[in-house]
Write a protein that binds this DNA or RNA. Structure first.
Lengths: 144, 144
DNA sequence: GACTGTCGTAACAATTAATGTTGCGACTGC
DNA sequence: GCAGTCGCAACATTAATTGTTACGACAGTC
């Protein structure tokens, strides 16, 4: 389905900053994170900008500039990141409104909307169960 | 997120065929369904072709051709439709492989993979709880 | 056996979203 | 003033979905 790796990259960036800070550094640059994620610094800045708006990270400018965590990794969940980074709903409706003169065309959107809402709520609950500290732990576990 | 209405359109088509058959008709044409969904018949044929491969619908050719349900709506779940119609996983990995020389770059994909698998499993369970008969019922409820 | 209506499928265009890239001004410590 | 990095805009590239056209295959009917 989705050609959409935003959540993955955002988690990557947060784990990277968290580990880097754990190693005693103050801030991480978009350049460093981009190298680790094998992408362009601007892509990282865009993503981190959204995370900053959500209060998950902070940025400094000027010399010695860069990014740092605004909260402990253990207090951030994937749901926080997901909501900061994913704009729309999981499943989309028709791109053109269906025939309102047809019973099915008229009723399908409210029906699916209701169903999808319940499913998204469950997805949120699952995402909320995973903290970024869990993610970093799993990341480090893979290297042994 | 996903600019992806495949599941919605597929459910629309199945509900339409189900209702049409309930009204005594043998088969529905892609033309009719496309009119209700306000899209092109070929789009419907493509989707229904995938549903046929999954054993949910059947098609006849020649004069009086069209589509019919292969099973009761009550025995089809949204999960059946989802699996027939959605190709990839819900969340994607990096589009280029991250820096394998970096601890995070090395461990992030297995870590996220494990997390995503659990979440997708939950999603599947939710989708499996909704039958297409439920969908049609909700559709008809909206018109009153 | 020709005719008709619909599927089956390929080929291509159009649209949209995400991602990648370049450029440059803004900021801040030296 | 200088250097390093963010902030952001503009544009290019890529990929997926959707829309469209075209035409052959098929199966009934006349």
């Amino acid at each position: 389905m989705s050609a959409n790796s935003r959540l993955t990259i955002a988690a990557h960036a947060l784990a990277w900053i968290g580990l880097y800070q754990r190693q005693g550094h103050e801030v991480a640059t978009s350049e460093q994170i981009a190298t680790s994620a094998n992408t362009n610094p601007v892509v990282i800045r865009r993503l981190l900008g959204e995370l900053r708006r959500a209060g998950l990270v902070e940025s400094r400018r000027g010399v010695g500039a860069g990014w740092s965590l605004a909260r402990e990794l253990g207090s951030m969940t994937l749901l926080d990141v997901y909501e900061a980074v994913e704009p729309g709903p999981l499943f989309a409706m028709h791109r053109t409104t269906p025939d309102q003169g047809c019973v099915v065309g008229y009723g399908i959107q409210p029906a699916m909307q209701g169903i999808y809402e319940g499913i998204e709520e469950t997805l949120r609950r699952e995402l909320a169960r995973v903290t970024l500290a869990n993610v970093l732990r799993d990341v480090l576990a893979a290297s042994r």
